[in-house]
């Protein structure tokens, strides 16, 4: 069995979730290679070399992959796929974007967002916003899989893989990158933080998210939000937690002014400890919370910040 894993990165940093995807690959078993496709991404290659359990790092460093456009990356990965039984990527926005193209070009079905490996061809994945868990067997000889990182533990970074430079430079020529508007933040990534504190519609406006910042500073937490808070323009879209936003599973998740709709729960209910702060004792969030406070968030938050 040979497995190729696409490395998530931004040309500077290897996204830590890739380490969890490697552990999903180890559960399948076989020779594991990584692919770094990007431009001026030597720093990422250095980090990829150290990922445990990996024998080779393939590097496609070319302007065609600078923004990891799906049209170009999918051609590269499809070409490399000839040598592998399993192609994997983390179910983040890059992998979700190009992997189904790879599957279609290889004429195989994709198994999205796996949370468990039963055997080399049988995988476990959530459906219906996590309200049901499906066990699916793939009948294709080649497997194309995306992995929900929160379901796997990260592998260590004490490896020493060989680096193989590729000469491919496939540019489909049908799309181009215009610009990025990335949110700058000093805080840990939502996906990587041990503590996440999220605000919902109950926060009333964007300014009030400052009340979460003081607490986040003390706990080293990332800040998230419900869709209602994002829709209302309180905070940017990349903070959304849920079925269609980010999936998080920190040690501690604090939901503030969030009712607990199934779509929100889908993104956080695998957190180890859940705390809910909500003035409505009937809010569904209390059904999943380990500790709840039924109170006005504007009273609770300043006091909580003081007492931490």
């Amino acid at each position: 069995m040979s497995i190729l894993i696409y490395v998530e990165h931004d040309n500077n940093e290897l996204k830590a979730d890739t380490l969890k995807t490697v552990s999903a690959a180890q559960a399948i078993g076989g020779d594991i290679n990584l692919l770094v496709a990007g431009h001026n991404c030597a720093a990422v290659v250095e980090q990829a070399k150290n990922v445990s359990g990996v024998s080779k790092v393939l590097v496609a460093d070319n302007a065609a992959y600078a923004n990891q456009l799906a049209e170009n990356v999918s051609l590269l990965v499809t070409e490399l796929a000839a040598d592998y039984n399993v192609i994997m990527a983390t179910a983040l926005t890059t992998g979700k974007n190009f992997m189904p193209r790879v599957a279609a070009l290889l004429d195989v079905a994709q198994i999205s967002d796996i949370i468990g490996v039963e055997s080399a061809d049988t995988f476990v994945r959530p459906i219906y916003a996590g309200n049901a868990i499906a066990t699916v067997q793939s009948l294709d000889s080649k497997k194309v899989i995306t992995v929900r990182a929160t379901a796997f533990d990260a592998v260590a970074t004490d490896g020493n893989a060989d680096v193989v430079n590729l000469s491919q430079a496939t540019d489909a020529g049908t799309s181009s990158h215009v610009n990025d508007e990335f949110t700058e933040s000093e805080r840990p990534d939502l996906g990587a933080a041990n503590v996440v504190i999220s605000g919902g519609r109950g926060m009333q406006n964007g300014d009030n998210f400052k009340l979460l910042e003081g607490i986040a500073d003390k706990l080293g937490a990332a800040i998230g939000a419900s869709r209602a808070a994002v829709d209302a323009g309180f905070v940017p879209n990349d903070m959304q937690v849920g079925q269609t936003g980010k999936i998080v599973a920190p040690d501690l998740y604090i939901a503030v002014g969030i009712s607990g709709a199934i779509q929100h729960l889908a993104g956080m209910k695998d957190s180890k400890i859940i705390v809910a702060i909500n003035k409505d004792a009937e809010a569904p969030i209390f059904q999943v919370a380990d500790y709840g406070i039924v109170a006005d968030l504007f009273d609770v938050l300043p006091e909580l910040e003081n007492k931490l």
């Binding site: 923004n67 990158h177 990025d180 508007e181 990335f182 996906g191 879209n237 990349d238």
Partner: peptide, 10 residues
């Protein structure tokens, strides 16, 4: 809508 924010493509 991407993980880091927004990306525009043509």
């Amino acid at each position: 809508e991407v993980d880091g924010g927004l990306q525009t493509v043509a």
